[in-house]
Computed example of a mutant assay.
Amino acid sequence: MDSFSIYHNLTILSAPQKVFEAITHPEHLNHWWTKKCSGIPREGEIYNFFFTAEYDWYSEVVKCKTNEQFYISMTESDADWDSTTFGFDLKAISDGTQLNFSHRGWPQCNEHFKRSSYCWAILLLGLKSYVEKGIIVPFEERQ
């Protein structure tokens, strides 16, 4: 069976360590993605991504290499997301960090897939603004 994937690449003008912290530590995730998050950046650990009572999702860390890689497999979310894994690959470059993002395993190229691809692009720009400039977009104003 075919599956579909989302890919976004961007440069963040900051060291990989700072980017890694922003994508793995719950207190940082809450500044650009989740409303409330818990988890430890270590393989086999469980993350809870809370957005609203309706969107209270769980996942497992499937790959974690400090300052280089962080991958999450969704375990309790919705029908489209449950089959997916998203992750970040980080590489130090002369002016900061090259971040390569992927969200793989989508069962269909449906409206939810398309909307999620758009949302990830907006959220990743929020991540960039947060890491580079300390800008926090209030949860209610995020896509």
Rank of each mutant, 00 (worst) to 15 (best):
M1G: 12
S3I: 00
S3Q: 02
S3P: 07
F4W: 12
S5D: 06
I6C: 08
Y7I: 02
H8T: 09
N9C: 04
L10M: 10
T11S: 15
I12E: 04
L13V: 01
S14D: 14
S14F: 10
S14W: 08
P16M: 02
P16R: 15
Q17F: 11
Q17H: 11
Q17C: 00
V19D: 02
F20H: 05
F20R: 06
E21S: 08
I23A: 08
H25N: 15
P26Y: 01
P26I: 01
P26C: 04
E27S: 13
N30D: 03
N30M: 11
W32Y: 03
W33Y: 08
T34M: 11
T34H: 04
K35L: 07
K35V: 01
K36F: 03
C37Y: 11
P41M: 01
P41L: 12
G44M: 11
G44T: 09
E45W: 07
I46E: 13
I46V: 15
N48Y: 05
F50K: 07
T52Y: 10
A53R: 12
A53I: 08
E54L: 08
E54A: 10
D56V: 06
D56P: 05
Y58H: 14
Y58G: 01
E60A: 00
K65A: 10
N67S: 14
Q69H: 15
M74F: 13
T75F: 11
E76N: 09
S77H: 03
D78T: 11
D80Y: 09
W81F: 07
W81I: 02
D82H: 04
D82F: 07
S83Q: 02
S83P: 04
S83N: 07
F86E: 06
F86Y: 07
G87V: 02
G87K: 14
F88N: 08
L90K: 01
S94G: 06
D95E: 14
D95Q: 12
G96F: 13
G96E: 10
G96H: 04
T97P: 03
L99M: 11
L99G: 14
F101E: 03
F101N: 03
H103M: 07
H103L: 09
R104G: 03
P107N: 15
P107C: 12
Q108P: 08
H112G: 02
F113Q: 12
K114H: 01
R115S: 14
R115Q: 02
S116W: 04
S117R: 03
S117I: 05
S117T: 00
W120Q: 02
W120R: 10
I122P: 05
L124R: 12
L124C: 00
L124M: 02
L125F: 05
G126H: 10
L127K: 13
L127Q: 11
L127D: 07
V131N: 10
V131W: 09
K133I: 04
I136H: 00
V137T: 02
V137S: 01
P138Y: 08
F139V: 06
F139D: 02
F139H: 12
E140D: 13
E140Y: 01
E141R: 00
